[in-house]
Every structure is written in structure tokens, then in C-alpha cells.
Design a protein around this nucleic acid. Sequence first.
DNA 1: CGGGGGATTGACGTAGCTCAACCCGAGTGG
DNA 2: CCACTCGGGTTGAGCTACGTCAATCCCCCG
Lengths: 248, 248
Amino acid sequence: MGERRRTSPVEPVTISPLSCSIDEQRRRLGQAPFFRGLGDADLEEVLAVFAPRHYPDSAPIHHAGAEATRLSVIAAGMVKLARPTRDGQDVVLDILGPGESFGSLAELGDAAHRETATAHTQCCILSTTSGAFHRILTHYPAVALAALEIVAGRLRESHDTIEQVSAYPVEHRVAATLLKLADRAGTPEGAGILIEMPLSRQDLADMTGATVETVSRVMSEFRRAGLVESGRRWIAIRDRDGLAAIAG
Amino acid sequence: MGERRRTSPVEPVTISPLSCSIDEQRRRLGQAPFFRGLGDADLEEVLAVFAPRHYPDSAPIHHAGAEATRLSVIAAGMVKLARPTRDGQDVVLDILGPGESFGSLAELGDAAHRETATAHTQCCILSTTSGAFHRILTHYPAVALAALEIVAGRLRESHDTIEQVSAYPVEHRVAATLLKLADRAGTPEGAGILIEMPLSRQDLADMTGATVETVSRVMSEFRRAGLVESGRRWIAIRDRDGLAAIAG
DNA sequence: CGGGGGATTGACGTAGCTCAACCCGAGTGG
DNA sequence: CCACTCGGGTTGAGCTACGTCAATCCCCCG
């Protein structure tokens, strides 16, 4: 009665068999911001040191505290970067998609991972050792510059997050987070934008520094206002401008 | 009564005349992480494109929103990086010291400054245009690598901050912030560590995402517990371990 | 000595956390 | 194929950390 929530999830069940075939994945990686700017020959040489590996959904890739020995680039799927806190809660720093990298990049010169990386969907990861990566950096200045730009961009986003969490209420943060995700991984669907990844209230809470309950309340609020639609592990945006108004 | 607070501030009145002499400052900059790894000849060449400029205490260096045209390195003094929020409060992202850089580094590829930079003490800044800086990056790979390492380090610190602000109470954040500052700019003094920079409650509040009043209460608490001593615009740490216990 | 900007402290309001009950849709095994 | 279970989601009722507002204090300056 009154509110009808879409109950038949036209879900983003991205369960393609993800062959993780080396050649296929490598071809796609040539496009990654990381390797942009390399000639074909160089690209071939650089990619040669990367080894592919498949992770099933929710599999841990590495834990915080573990020795940081590899640099990884996502060929397919999504990876969640989180910091476990003393009291057992998680602070999600980012959810990365294809072409994005993690591992000993952000932790250059750091011996241990500060963050836990988990396969947020099943995914295929190309990775190499820190040593090999460092050799690439010194040997191919273009890669070093690309890396610099990538890290600088992330730093900017982190600053955004700090501002959000320090100065704005939960409602605002949730709206902003949804918009960010929609820009990154949204596809038009019906009269809205479907965020193409599994996204639970818990995820959203961990990304905004709030609790599941509060996020749930905020989302209900948004739904009643016709801003979003959501279900078990998915979220779609109905009224982008409305959300943007709340996000500021 | 009972509590005696040090009322005679053996202040860090770093009001050396800061001549900002080019040669003197340049000599010191050779040590900056940025230019480490450059040979003498190269260093000379690189430094040549930097122009020095002096800023009095509290002078604005650039405002958020302004076009990002320069990269700056601090020769002497301290610079406060802050984001002004919609509702007029400031979120302080960092306070930088000699040898550290700001400007179009974190904003590589970004046209406008996201942050306001202010002279937190009087200071001397060497700066160059983004164009010249970019030329340096491509021409001297060592600088690009150093920059990468610097930005990666900052990213890590930003992640620390996000964790703090998302998951821990104000008390905890203030303690952690004090420790961070002490490590960076602390000098042993009497039975404690004096933080060598002017540091108001407002600054601390803006760094921790809290209000002046709350920070003041927390600091009073700390003082009563014998952890810190503080006055008008300065702070000293009496019991490092005690603070560390609170910071976790 | 008087003024002013920072700091302190108190009283009060509230956003968001905690605890707890309940619901619902999707697997799963009988 | 149905019943059970179980993991997520929702909702409510308190509680508390922290923000807000306001008064007062205390250096430090002219």
C-alpha cells in the first residue's frame, strides 16, 4: 500500500565466468591509466612481469598488517579497501574497479599493508612484486608520472572524504557517497541509474562512518522522498538532482 | 587552586628575522625530500626555476577555488592547508613545515585549488609555475619518484585521518593529533615535549573535526590528568605514554 | 588600565549510536 | 516443492557524546 518497492530485482548479477585469460585481460589493461603513454613494445615488456590471479567473491586478497610485497592492478571485478579498527568495525576507504591499482603503491616505502583488500565481487587481479614494480618505475618514467597522477587523484578524494566526515551530517555523506558511486559504476536503467555493484547497508555505513541502522533510516527517508530505490544488496538512483541537492 | 598551570610561557616565539635570502634558503632546500637524489649540477638547475617569497604571519597564500598555477616548497615557517566548508567552518587537512610542498602537486591535473593555504607562521616559500614543475618532473625522473613517494605518504596519512574521524571519539582524535604534531615539530623541554608552533584550540578543533568548546574540555581533562600543559596559543606534552594510551 | 581575542565552563538540545524486536526474501535440505 | 533458516533490512525506544548558546575569565596588547 502506498509505497511500492521494486521487489523483482533486475539485478546486476555480473556473474560472467570471468575467464581471467591472460591475453584478454592484458589487452584490457593496456587502457588502464597506469599504462597509458607506453608504446606497444614497452607495454608488452611491462605487462610481462604481471601475473594474473582469480579471486572468488568475498575472498580476502590481503590483510592489514601483512607484509606489503606486491602491487596489483584490477583486470576485472571490484576490490574493497578497508581498515579494520581496534573495536572490530571496518572503515572502507575505497571500492576500486577495473584498471585501478592497490597494494604497495599507496604504501611505497612502507613495509606492511595498512589496509585489508577483499574481493568485493569475484575478480581477476594482475600483480607483480614491489621490486619489479620499482624497477618499472625507474625504467619507464611515463609509468612513474602516471602513478603520480593516480596517487595525487586519490589524495584529493581522501581530502574530500575527510571534509565530509568532519563537517557534514550522515544524510549528506550518504548522498555524496551514492553520487560518487553512481558516477563511477552507474548505468542508466529505467528512469534512474543503477549502481552496478553489490552494495549493502553495511558497506554504505562503513564508507560513511555511520552505523547500519542510521544508514537504513536515511535510505528509507530517501526512498520515501523518491530519491532512490534499493533492495537486498543493490541500490538505484531515481532523482540525481534531488540527491545532489542534499549532498550540497 | 590545586592545579598550577604554567603561566609563564617559555614560548616558541620563532620570530627570527627570516631573511628569506635566496642562497641560504636554497642550500637548505637541497635537503628537502623533494630534491634528494639530485646531483649538485642538476639541483642547481632545478632550483633555478624557483622564486622565493616571504609571507607574514597569517597571510593568505592562496584561496580554495583559485586557479592552481604554482607548486610551492616551504623554505622556512609553516603553512596551514584547510578546506572551507559551505557553512563557514574550516577543515584543516595538514600543517606543513620546512621542506614540505603544496600547490599543484596534490592537484596535478586539477585546474583549481581545492584548499586554502595560509601562512601559519611567517614563512618563506619557494615556488615555480606548474609548467616548469611539469618539465622538471619529466626531465628529472628522480624528482618524479620522490614526488610519488611524498604523495603516497600523504595519502597514507589521509587514510589515517579518515579512520580516526570515522571511528574514534574526540578525545582519541585530539590525543592522536597532538602526538603526530609532537613527532613532527616537538622539542624536548623540561619534563615534556613542546610543540614548536602556535596551536590554538580552534586549530586543534579544525584538525579533529570537533568544536572549540569540546576541544577545550578535552584539553582541560588532559591537563587535570597531567598529560599536557597548554596556554594561549601553545601546547606541551607532559606524559607521552599516557596520551598514546588514549590515542590507542 | 581598558579592550579584545582566545580559553574555559555551564546548561541545554539533538544527531546519531545502542540495544532489541521484527520482517522479509532467498537458499537449502528434507 | 515446501518449510526452515538465516542473513540482511527496517523500525522503535532510550541514551550519550558532542554541538550550540551564552556567560565569564584571563592574558596580552596598546
